[in-house]
C-alpha cells in the first residue's frame, strides 16, 4: 500500500514536463507499461489475502484512473500546444499576388457579336452564314443594285484577281447582305435568320477599317410589315442598351430594301439631355441599324413570289457597338492585336 501511495504521489509530477507524443507514451509506460510500476504492483495481487485483495484492488484502480486522467490531460495539453504552434506561425503576407491561372481575353468584337447574336436567337432567329469571298452577282446584282448606278459607290469594293476565269467578277463581300441571297436560295419561306460575319470595304481612315464585322437580319414570311421590323429592333435595342430606350424610325436608302429606314435608339447615356454627351454628341439618338422591307426584286431574284411573301432585313455594325461599349478611341485599335489593348478589356 505504501508503494501504491508513492506511485500516486508521483503521477502528476511525472506527466507535467511531458513535451511530445513520445515522452507521453514513455511516461504512460512508466506506470502502466509491461515494466511499469503500477503493473508490477498489480502483478503481485494474486499473492494477497482475499480480504486484502478487495481494498488493494480498489486502491490500484484509483491510482490507475489517476494515471489515465493525467495522461489524457497531458495529451490535451500537447494537442493544444501543437495547434497553437501551427496557428501562431508567421502569418503569410497575403498582399503578395495570388498564384492564379491565366485568364484569357475574348476579342471585344466577338464579345459584342455573340451578345448581339444571342439577343436575336432568344427572339427566335437562327444563325446563317455565307463565305467571305463572293461573286458580284450575290453581292450586288441579286440584291437589286442597278448596274452603273451611283449606289455602287456607297460600298467601295475589293475585287479579287479572277485569273482569266470566265463568269461574273469575284470580290470580298462588302456586306453580310450576301447571306440574304444564300439563305433565300436555300429553302422556301418562312425565313428568320441573323447572319454575323466579316465584311470588307476599300476604305481606310480614322473612322473606317477595310475589314469590319456586321450582323444581318432577315425575316420573310406572309404578312410581315414595317411594324414587325420596328418591333424587332426596338426589343433588340432595349435588351442591348436598357429597357428605357425608345426608338425612332426615319427614311433612308439601300438598294435592296424598299422602303428603307434607319432605326435610331435614344441615347442610353444622356437620354438626349446632354448637349456634350460623349456618346450621342448631343443629338439624343444613336444609329442602331440600317433596315427596310426586302425589295420585291430581291425576293423574285431568289424565286420567291413577292406578292405572297414580304419581309424585312436589317444590318448592324458590330465595330461601332464595340467602340461604344468599351469606349475604344479609334477603330484601328480593334485590329491592332496589341496585347496591351486586348488585356485592358
Amino acid at each position: 500500500m505504501e508503494a501504491l501511495d508513492a506511485i500516486e504521489r508521483e503521477v502528476d509530477s511525472a506527466f507535467a514536463p511531458v513535451r511530445d507524443e513520445q515522452e507521453l507514451r514513455a511516461t504512460h509506460a512508466k506506470f502502466l507499461g509491461k515494466e511499469g510500476s503500477l503493473t508490477e504492483i498489480m502483478r503481485r495481487m494474486p499473492e494477497l489475502a482475499p480480504a486484502e485483495k478487495k481494498t488493494f484492488g480498489q486502491a490500484v484502480n484509483r491510482v490507475k484512473t489517476a494515471v489515465e486522467a493525467a495522461s489524457e490531460a497531458a495529451e490535451v495539453r500537447l494537442r493544444q500546444a501543437a495547434l497553437a504552434r501551427e496557428l501562431d506561425r508567421e502569418p503569410t503576407d497575403v498582399t503578395m499576388p495570388g498564384r492564379r491561372p491565366r485568364v484569357g481575353r475574348q476579342h471585344p468584337l466577338h464579345r459584342v457579336l455573340y451578345d448581339v447574336t444571342d439577343i436575336f436567337v432568344s427572339m427566335g432567329f437562327d444563325v446563317a452564314e455565307g463565305p467571305e469571298s463572293d461573286w458580284e452577282t450575290n453581292n450586288f446584282e441579286r440584291l437589286g443594285f442597278p448596274p452603273d448606278h451611283p449606289a455602287l459607290d456607297m460600298q467601295d469594293t475589293f475585287f479579287l484577281h479572277n485569273e482569266g476565269r470566265p463568269g461574273p467578277r469575284t470580290l470580298l463581300r462588302t456586306h453580310t447582305s450576301t447571306v440574304q441571297i444564300r439563305e433565300l436560295l436555300s429553302h422556301p419561306p418562312p425565313v428568320m435568320i441573323v447572319a454575323p460575319g466579316t465584311v470588307f470595304r476599300c476604305d481606310d481612315d480614322a473612322t473606317h477599317s477595310p475589314m469590319f464585322a456586321q450582323i444581318e437580319g432577315l425575316v420573310v414570311d406572309e404578312g410581315i410589315s414595317l411594324a414587325h421590323l420596328r418591333g424587332t429592333l426596338a426589343t433588340f435595342a432595349q435588351r442591348l442598351f436598357g429597357k428605357d430606350v425608345t426608338t425612332r424610325m426615319r427614311g433612308s436608302y439601300f438598294p435592296f430594301t424598299e422602303p428603307s429606314v434607319e432605326l435610331d435608339a435614344s441615347c442610353s447615356v444622356c437620354g438626349g439631355r446632354d448637349p456634350h454627351c460623349r456618346l450621342c454628341k448631343g443629338s439624343g439618338w444613336l444609329e442602331v441599324a440600317g433596315a427596310g422591307m426586302v425589295d420585291p426584286i430581291v425576293l423574285s431574284n431568289c424565286g420567291i413570289d413577292p406578292e405572297k411573301y414580304t419581309g424585312f432585313a436589317f444590318g448592324l455594325g458590330i465595330d461601332r457597338l464595340a467602340m461604344i461599349r468599351y469606349q475604344v478611341p479609334s477603330i484601328e485599335l480593334l485590329y491592332s492585336n496589341d496585347e496591351r489593348f486586348l488585356r485592358s478589356l
Partner: peptide, 16 residues
C-alpha cells in the same frame, strides 16, 4: 409605324 412582334416561325437557317 407601330411596333409589332414577329410571330416566330421557328424556321431553321439553310445557309449554315
Amino acid at each position: 409605324v407601330p411596333l409589332a412582334v414577329v410571330p416566330s416561325s421557328g424556321a431553321r437557317a439553310g445557309a449554315v
